[in-house]
């Protein structure tokens, strides 16, 4: 087994009476794509929220690259190298696509705060070219100066992916990256995610589309009612009767 990049240790979270996460133990190996699947309300998004500092767990810790990140500010976790792509596209609707990608690029370069008010954007060639490159990679190169808010939902999702990728995170958390995309765009995203896998970026993917999960994931965890009920390679998960019962309603995969 390779190095553990993310170590979720006995994480517990309740909302009122709902036990959203119950003693979750999960170790993610560096450089792998790990999928988390499970029925709606299983706690998948809550788990990602704990990893990026949006929620603090009641108990337990999350370690990233050996360092405890629970209790840290979201922007500190971002700079540690954890980036999340949200389920409903979280972009800057009033900015152009290019600016949407330049903003995270500046965060990577300038840190949490920099008062570079005298510098002109037009002199930031390196950042701009990098942003154009990433947008081109994702097939958004023709729309550089378009208003991000007026793009289609699928384009917004790809834009958000671009915003994540430009920061070269060590760990990328993807919350249903292909939901709402056409089959064509889904395949393109799968192809892209496979391509960047070779760069050694670790990914955690939440996904309902089993086609996406089985074509991408190295390992899969199945979450149901806040617990991990199964874990293993795609083949092991496919054949696991417990999974089929809990999640897939007994249907053959």
């Amino acid at each position: 087994m390779g190095d553990i990049i993310l170590d979720i240790d006995k994480v517990d979270k309740t909302f009122g009476g709902l036990h959203a996460l119950a003693d979750i133990d999960l170790k993610i190996e560096e450089g792998k794509i790990h999928a988390i699947i499970g029925p709606n309300g299983a706690g998948k998004s809550t788990l990602l929220n704990v990893c990026i500092g949006r929620l603090e767990p009641d108990r337990g810790t999350v370690r990233f690259n050996g360092e405890i990140i629970t209790g840290k500010k979201p922007y500190e976790i971002n700079h540690a190298g954890v980036v999340r792509v949200f389920q409903t596209p979280e972009i800057f609707p009033d900015l152009s696509l290019l600016q949407n990608v330049m903003v995270p690029a500046f965060a990577k370069r300038d840190g949490t705060f920099k008062f570079n008010f005298w510098k002109s954007l037009s002199s930031e060639k390196a950042i701009r070219e990098e942003a154009e490159q990433v947008l081109n990679d994702l097939g958004l190169g023709e729309h550089l100066n378009h208003h991000a808010g007026s793009m289609s939902r699928g384009d917004k999702r790809r834009l958000e992916l671009a915003m994540g990728l430009i920061q070269h995170p060590r760990l990328l958390l993807l919350d249903e990256p292909t939901a709402g995309m056409s089959r064509h765009d889904t395949n393109r995203t799968i192809e892209l995610l496979t391509r960047i896998k070779e760069r050694g970026m670790t990914k955690i993917i939440i996904e309902h589309d089993m086609h996406v999960v089985f074509s991408l994931a190295d390992t899969i965890s199945v979450l149901a009612q806040g617990r991990i009920i199964a874990q293993g390679t795609p083949d092991e998960i496919r054949g696991n009767p417990k999974v089929q019962e809990a999640y897939l309603g007994g249907a053959e995969l």
Binding site: Q99, F113, F117
Partner: peptide, 24 residues
Amino acid sequence: HSPFGMKLRAIKSNQTRMVYTGYN
């Protein structure tokens, strides 16, 4: 027309996103 100004516009557009993008 500076990066600083663009970041201010981004805050206006979606402040929550800015925090998860690594900005205080």
